[in-house]
């Protein structure tokens, strides 16, 4: 017996916007913009705007394709159940067409208006997020966000490449910082929404390896992340402003991560340290990247 999907009215335009995960896009756009502004070459404002727009559209496309593929998981998680697809406000095919179209448009515009290096890295980042993270890793391994974190680390590289047409050590360190920041950031979240992930069958570390192992991994990943954060200053790629902000900001991050790594939650625990680490980790990345740009302007190499 075949089942026929109910015919849905055309989705509201706001649902297409929601498909692009605008809140995630904020951080992606900001790090991409910082990568561009930290570059030693000035970019024409119109071309720079176009590059940031393409980064945003590419991230939105990747988010849309992620939601298209994960509609079944999203439906059983409280945090995501109200998204357009699991909530039945949009046809899956529309989401797929929107995601593919937006991805192709962002890459073509980047290639024609900015340069081919930025377009190539943008293509890799979209494919990495959709194919490597969403399709391959997320449902198979608790290391999903460790490797998949690379997808979110590409924007500073794209921004730098948009300005220079090339890649250098500083944007690679910016990539490394976001890449190594992702596990403690997401595992802090996973600790307090563990039941959601377990219900959806997503093998996040707290679900598969337990709370103690996850806390230990948060502590361990903070060490190379701290090194990546301070390295641009230690290698004299930046001036003292970035040095001070990165050392102080990372010390606060490390202190919070240490608290999370060493504590054990009890029955009915509000998980405040974990929520605090998760919230601070977002602010941390904004502040570090903002300081990097301010430093490069104040103390040009």
């Amino acid at each position: 017996m075949s089942t026929v999907a109910p015919l849905l009215p055309p989705a509201d335009w706001r649902d297409f916007l929601a498909l692009t995960k605008p809140r995630v896009m904020t951080l992606v756009v900001f790090t991409g913009l910082c990568g561009m502004l930290a570059a030693p070459v000035a970019i024409h404002p119109v071309i720079g705007f176009t590059a940031v727009l393409c980064i945003a559209l590419g991230a939105g496309a990747a988010g849309a394709l992620n939601q298209w593929y994960e509609a079944d998981i999203d439906a059983v998680m409280r945090r995501t159940a109200k998204r357009p697809l699991p909530d039945g406000r949009m046809d899956r095919q529309a989401a797929l067409h929107f995601g593919v179209g937006l991805a192709a448009f962002s890459v073509i515009l980047m290639g024609l208006a900015v340069n081919l290096a930025a377009a190539a890295i943008l293509t890799i980042s979209i494919l990495f997020y959709v194919l490597i993270y969403t399709v391959w890793l997320k449902r198979r391994t608790p290391q999903n966000i460790v490797i998949g974190g690379a997808a979110g680390a590409f924007p500073p590289l794209i921004g730098w490449a948009a300005a220079t047409g090339d890649v250098a050590l500083l944007p690679l360190l910016m990539f490394a910082l976001v890449f190594l920041w992702t596990p403690p950031h997401f595992w802090a979240l996973a600790l307090f929404v563990r039941t959601d992930y377990a219900a959806a069958g997503v093998p996040m570390l707290p679900v598969v390896a337990g709370e103690v192992a996850t806390r230990r991994q948060i502590g361990l990943y903070t060490i190379p992340m701290a090194a990546a954060a301070v390295l641009p200053w230690a290698l004299a790629l930046t001036g003292p402003l970035y040095g001070i902000v990165s050392v102080v900001g990372t010390a606060v991050f490390a202190a919070m991560a240490w608290t999370v790594a060493t504590r054990r939650s009890g029955e009915g625990d509000a998980m405040r340290p974990e929520k605090r680490l998760f919230g601070y980790s977002i602010l941390y990345l904004f502040v570090i990247f903002g300081a990097l740009v301010a430093d490069r302007w104040m103390f040009p190499a």
Binding site: P9, P10, D12, W13, V46, I47, T50, A113
Partner: peptide, 26 residues
């Protein structure tokens, strides 16, 4: 919904025309 989508699409296409023009001039 069709009207709202058409309006948004019109604004986006208008913005794209302006952007392509600005890129060409740049």
């Amino acid at each position: 919904r069709q009207r709202a989508r058409a309006r948004v699409m019109g604004v986006l296409l208008g913005g794209l025309v302006l952007l392509i023009f600005a890129i060409s001039i740049a």
